[in-house]
Every structure is written in structure tokens, then in C-alpha cells.
Design a protein around this nucleic acid. Structure first.
Lengths: 89, 89
DNA sequence: ACTTACGGTAAGCAAATACTTACGCTATAG
DNA sequence: CTATAGCGTAAGTATTTGCTTACCGTAAGT
């Protein structure tokens, strides 16, 4: 559910009640998910009038991306080494 | 903790008790994490004698990578659009 | 000034999670 | 054939989680 909230921010900033629309959970529940996402550095928020706009934090998302890229590299190299080892059998 | 188990597979296949070594949880706990990772399609396992070797499944990892890449693209485009909108102000 | 829209937080609760220990199975070693 | 190493699974349990409703504060509209 948290991922669904996050995915809804893909296309740009959204207010809390907008995010809650269409999700099978209450608005406060969405608020709580946003809080977690914010603490994780994945979103930032700003006040706009009575609303609060949330949007994805590219730097937070970038951190994950770099982690995954590095992980991917190592894992794939290990996989290839393993395949070669297999081939020599 | 599950991520730590997963990360230990980065460098290649490992037996369960190897993975458990150095982690602050019991071997059965590691087994349970591996079960979840396997159901998620992130690892594959094979029997080797009395041991069971686990390793990262590149195709499962690739699925995540593609998801993240696509997400990254969309999010960054939205971010740029937002920045331009800001600039015109 | 009053009302309404919007959203964060608290309290409460059912369900899911993440361990532990105990146990049993299978394959190798001696 | 027996002992041992390696693992998976079951049962039990404390903790965490993910929601709900109720409530309160703040900004904007009338």
C-alpha cells in the first residue's frame, strides 16, 4: 500500500486527499504512509495554503538507484564467474 | 535483516549456515528469510550434498531494476516539468 | 466572525511479522 | 550401520505493523 502511495507521486506533486482518492484506505492512513516515506528520504513536502503537497525526492530515489546499480553489478559478475566455473566442468 | 541476508549473496552462492555466520539471528531464522526471498523470485536454491546453496536470481533482480529505472525516468521528468513551471513564475 | 477544507496526530486494536526452540529428514563420513 | 552435518518446518510468543475513528489546528472563503 505504501508503494501504491509512492507510485501515485510519480507524475508530480499531489495533495494528501488526492492520493487517498482511489485507494482503499483512509486519508489518515495515507498521511502515515507519507510520514514513513518522508523519514526514509523518499519524499518531501511543502505547505500550499491549507493543503500539503508531497512529491518524490529525486536525491532519495537516486540513493536507492545507486545502491541497486552497484548491487546489480556485483551480483551479475558473481553470476558470470559461477557460469564459467560451471562451464569448465 | 532480510536485506542483510540478501546482500551476503552478492558475491556468489552460499550455504545457509554460512549466511547465518556473523548474523545476530539463528540459522532457522535465516532459512525463513531465504524462503521469503525465494517466493519473491530474488533467489534460487539448489541442493548440493547435504547443503543447500542459495544464490541471487538475476532475472528477479532485473525485474526490480527495470521497475526502478522506469519509475526513475517518470519521476525525474515530472521533477523537471515542475522546475520549469517554477522558473516561469 | 463563521464555516469549511485540509491534514497531522493520538488511541486503540486486529493481524502480520520475526524471532526462538524443538524436531525430523536426508546425505555424507567413518 | 551409525553418527554427524546441514536444513527445513512447526509451534509458540513478543513485537511491530497498518489500519480505524476521533480530535485538533490552521488557512481560506463568504
Amino acid at each position: 500500500m505504501r508503494r501504491r502511495v509512492f507510485e501515485r507521486l510519480r507524475r508530480g506533486p499531489r495533495a494528501v486527499h488526492e492520493l487517498a482518492r482511489g485507494l482503499p484506505i483512509s486519508r489518515p492512513a495515507v498521511s502515515q504512509h507519507l510520514k514513513v516515506l518522508k523519514e526514509a528520504g523518499l519524499v518531501v513536502d511543502r505547505a500550499e495554503g491549507t493543503r500539503r503537497l508531497y512529491q518524490i525526492d529525486p536525491s532519495g530515489l537516486g540513493t536507492i538507484r545507486r545502491w541497486l546499480d552497484e548491487f546489480w553489478d556485483e551480483a551479475l559478475n558473481a553470476f558470470r564467474d559461477e557460469a564459467e566455473k560451471e562451464e569448465r566442468t
